[in-house]
Design a protein around this nucleic acid. Structure first.
Lengths: 337, 337
DNA sequence: CTGAAAGCGCTTACAG
DNA sequence: CTGAAAGCGCTTACAG
């Protein structure tokens, strides 16, 4: 970088060198077409020559638009939200914004701390997974003035706007599959989080309506792993359970179940069908394949950013966006029964 | 939030209400102990009452310290760096800084764009995975004035500071395991990235020194998946290869190999040993367990932030930090041969 | 221990 | 289409 007056080039440096005012350079940067062609060209050349990079700290302060989007997720390792995170960061970047990442921890334990840190940067938007926790946090969010987007859920009363799907409906859809497939002994292995419970309730209620008992369910921790699917399924079989369909709250669990079943010579789907959740990359690669629920995590992310950008441009935004889901049936047609 | 004069409270609002100058409030915020006890108490109370949250955009501009750390990784879904990302974001947050996340894409394709966006925010530190690409980017990084930390690698000439381990040495360690275990027919299934290639070279060179041929190797894409491990191993067997040890450049590949082996009734480790890389969570949960290389991703992340914070505090920092690695042997003791 | 004042690098009415 | 000037909300020598 060429240095001018002992520091890095500023807007002022560029203006002086190009023989225009700072205001004009600023206009060129934010809306090139409103500057005269020849002036624009001169500024462009000067910027290239000086290696000038705008200071968005100053820009955000002056314009009261930080072009910062805060993204808050529980974690990034072993997270079902990662497709959403990738989609958001990419879309945010394409829109000329920058993503701040905050980790709220398991069960959103640290969301308060993260919120404070994030609000101090005056983001234009805050994207959360799940719902915006308790009263204090909801209040802080509203008062931040940012567009708040709750994702992966459809709360009845979103704080601002929600982008996601109904977990109850997912449960109901799985129930329909159970009923249509003629399964008699479903067993559920589930995470203990709010949303997984909602899916179970949707499932149980729909089965009950059809005169069926609520299925056995085993709740694990907030995050679920391959190994737990494996060990829980093994324990289940060892305890004498003979489910004809195992419904898991994540594809990781389902993968573990499949792995254990294969190792034990239990036939999928003839002896037992396996259902996951998330349609994670590997779920299509497992053999026998598992049935799973695709919730289009990247679409949720893309939609969230679209809304953010739209809001900034003054577009009227409805407060509920159902991105839907689909049950992807693989290997649930029973060969024998 | 209580409103004062029609907007949110600023430093000035707090100062006026507490009956002190802005300078004193600023001092209280940044270093409470240099303010008189009674003054401090008054300010504290006023802040609580007004719900004041500092504007760090302004703070960063005025102090020329943004307290922003940029983290640049290829992606977040299905990434071996995720433990590092979690550790960094948490440590950055604990240090009172904020993380900006940029995705450089597969093979760092988009690193240029991401760099520009990030530098415009004037971060105090920039953390990258791998080495800082080509000349243009290296130059931009240096000129940014931020502390640059290259992680997951130990370049001979780091741009600024490097935190990681030697991929060649990992390959050599695996070679030692191959030799010690008496394996005769190693086969490598590998990602095509620079670092995976370095590990292969370390492996091949160490074997060559011991009078052995370089092992067969099959290179896949930049990212490797469970399904590829499965299908590549299947193809290998179908083609008549009979490796006694399969060395994979990721635990995902290794998991796929194990899965396929189990399905085919191939005994691990009696017939074939499987080696992964990364010590990802599930690798210990696979049965039979795989041998893998633990590179302590979260330690790399924690160390990187420690260096950043130390540098800001004026601590002298050496430019190479070897965080080491360890080979975790599981199921490589051969039962028959 | 505290305050008055200048300044960080931008944006944006306002006027022409 | 362009410029002069005020202002965004902080921090930090400087002086006391």
């Amino acid at each position: 970088m060429a240095r001018y007056g002992g520091g890095r080039a500023t807007l002022g440096t560029v203006a002086r060198l190009a023989g225009v005012s700072s205001a004009t350079v600023s206009r060129y940067l934010n809306n090139p077409t409103i500057v005269a062609k020849r002036t624009a060209e001169r500024i462009r050349a000067t910027i290239a020559e000086t290696g000038y990079i705008p200071n968005l700290l100053a820009g955000g302060l002056a314009s009261n638009r930080s072009r910062l989007v805060a993204l808050i997720v529980p974690s990034v390792s072993h997270s079902i939200f990662n497709d959403t995170v990738d989609a958001i960061v990419d879309a945010v970047s394409d829109a000329g914004y920058t993503t701040m990442l905050g980790l709220s921890g398991e069960d959103d334990r640290r969301v308060g701390t993260v919120l404070d840190a994030v609000i101090a940067r005056r983001p234009d938007g805050i994207i959360l997974t799940g719902m915006a926790g308790d009263g204090v946090h909801r209040r802080r969010l509203v008062e931040s003035g940012a567009t708040i987007i709750e994702t992966w859920d459809l709360p009845d009363e979103p704080l601002d706007v929600a982008v996601g799907f109904s977990h109850r409906e997912v449960g109901e859809a799985v129930a329909n599959m159970v009923l249509a497939g003629g399964y008699q002994r479903p067993f559920v292995i589930s995470a203990r989080g709010r949303r997984a419970r909602l899916r179970y309730q949707g499932l149980a209620d729909a089965l009950r309506v059809n005169g069926r008992e609520p299925p056995h369910v085993e709740y694990l921790g907030y995050t679920t792993r391959f190994g737990e699917g494996r060990s829980r399924f093994a324990a289940l079989i060892d305890q004498g359970y003979r489910p004809d369909i195992v419904i898991c709250s994540s594809d990781w669990l389902a993968q573990g179940v499949v792995f254990e079943a294969v190792a034990r010579g239990i036939n999928i789907p003839a002896d037992v069908a396996v259902v996951g959740f998330g349609n994670l990359g590997f779920s299509v690669e497992i053999e026998p394949a598992i049935t799973t629920v695709d919730v289009r995590g990247s679409r949720i992310g893309a939609k969230a950013v679209e809304i953010l950008v739209g809001r900034a441009a003054g577009v009227e935004i409805s407060n509920q966006h159902d991105t839907g889901f689909s049950v992807i049936s693989r290997s649930t047609t029973r060969i024998s029964s």
